[in-house]
């Protein structure tokens, strides 16, 4: 049974169609990344699942029940984007407050919050007023509150916002740990490199439409393109390879050979071998999620008559 399932989910804010019939399924124990630029409809999707906003049409199920019901929210954790904790709370008092709303008894709350604050590195500041926290600390507290009550599903809306590179790495590791405990994690982000490193399955949403979904491996695989480099000073036999029916593109001191369907790279390698050219570099190319996303966005925009200005996602940054 899917943990999250939507069928033809629609949401209209006045004249704006935020979701245009989105259908997706998330299986238990997955880290699922919903990707898209700002305003694509990612947060609306989570909010409908949690009952924060009401769907206009379609179906949404969470943990087998109609999404948005009060009881089901006991089994769910949530970190909203741009969240704002009441400044008069300390980390401890806030977690006590939320824990009580989740129906946790005091010993449980004390034990779990101690662990959670330790995991997110806030134990030393546990009794400081939240108003004295930096943005990164607030974000880490937000993550702590999303999982400290032992939920089955955790929704994280832009979880690495405001967090430094080291913190991001810790968050990724934490999400892997939570996944290892059997929880399902649904992450909304526009930081594609982040999700590429941690998600099992991703979906791209653009202007309220789900344009593609699959595993990260499926998305990033770029079949039939090889990068070849020969020993320094040796010329690549470009003309002969082209003559053999391959597409060749010179990039700096290397060449990229693109195979047509059914073609193999072996004839090219044999040709180099026969000419006794010394091979030093051979790499089957992959594409980043950002590449995939940009292609999808460009494709989607090309299909619309009206020119749409698309905010480019934050550049994929290798964070470690």
């Amino acid at each position: 049974m899917s943990v999250i399932e939507t069928r033809d989910l629609r949401k209209q804010y006045g004249s704006v169609e935020a979701l245009k019939g989105v259908s997706l399924q998330v299986e238990p124990g997955q880290i699922y990344g919903l990707l898209g630029h700002n305003g694509a409809g990612k947060s609306t999707m989570i909010k409908i699942l949690l009952g924060i906003v009401k769907k206009t049409d379609g179906d949404a199920y969470l943990l087998g029940a109609e999404a948005g019901t009060t009881n089901i929210r006991k089994r769910v954790g949530y970190l909203p984007e741009d969240h704002q904790f009441p400044g008069y709370h300390t980390a401890v008092s806030l977690l006590h407050f939320y824990g009580e709303l989740y129906g946790m008894n005091r010993p449980d709350r004390v034990k779990r919050m101690d662990e959670a604050l330790d995991i997110v590195g806030l134990k030393k500041r546990a009794k400081s007023k939240i108003k004295t926290f930096s943005k990164g600390m607030k974000q880490r507290l937000g993550i702590a509150q999303s999982f400290f009550h032992d939920p089955e599903v955790i929704f994280l809306d832009e979880p690495t916002d405001g967090v430094d590179p080291a913190g991001r790495r810790e968050i990724r590791e934490l999400l892997q740990t939570l996944k290892g405990e059997g929880r399902t994690i649904f992450v909304n982000t526009h930081l594609l490199a982040e999700v590429e490193l941690m998600a099992d399955r991703v979906a791209f949403i653009h202007q309220g439409e789900l344009v593609r979904q699959g595993t990260v491996a499926e998305m990033t695989r770029r079949a039939n393109r090889f990068e070849i480099g020969l020993e320094k000073g040796i010329q690549f036999p470009t003309a002969e390879v082209r003559a053999a029916g391959f597409k060749v593109e010179v990039v700096d001191d290397k060449v990229e050979v693109e195979l047509a369907d059914g073609q193999s790279i072996d004839p090219v390698l044999e040709m180099l071998w026969a000419k006794k050219l010394k091979l030093r570099h051979l790499l089957e190319q992959k594409q980043t999620l950002e590449d995939v996303f940009m292609k999808l966005v460009e494709g989607a925009n090309a299909g619309t008559k009206k020119a749409v200005r698309v905010a480019r996602p934050v550049a994929a940054r290798r964070v470690d």
């Binding site: 009952g51 924060i52 929210r73 769910v76 969240h83 704002q84 939320y98 989740y102």
Partner: peptide, 18 residues
């Protein structure tokens, strides 16, 4: 109004309380 502040409200109404 504080409870209904953008950013504060979502945290609260996502909890199991009507």
């Amino acid at each position: 109004p504080n409870m209904m502040n953008k950013g504060a409200l979502d945290l609260l109404i996502a909890k199991p309380i009507s």
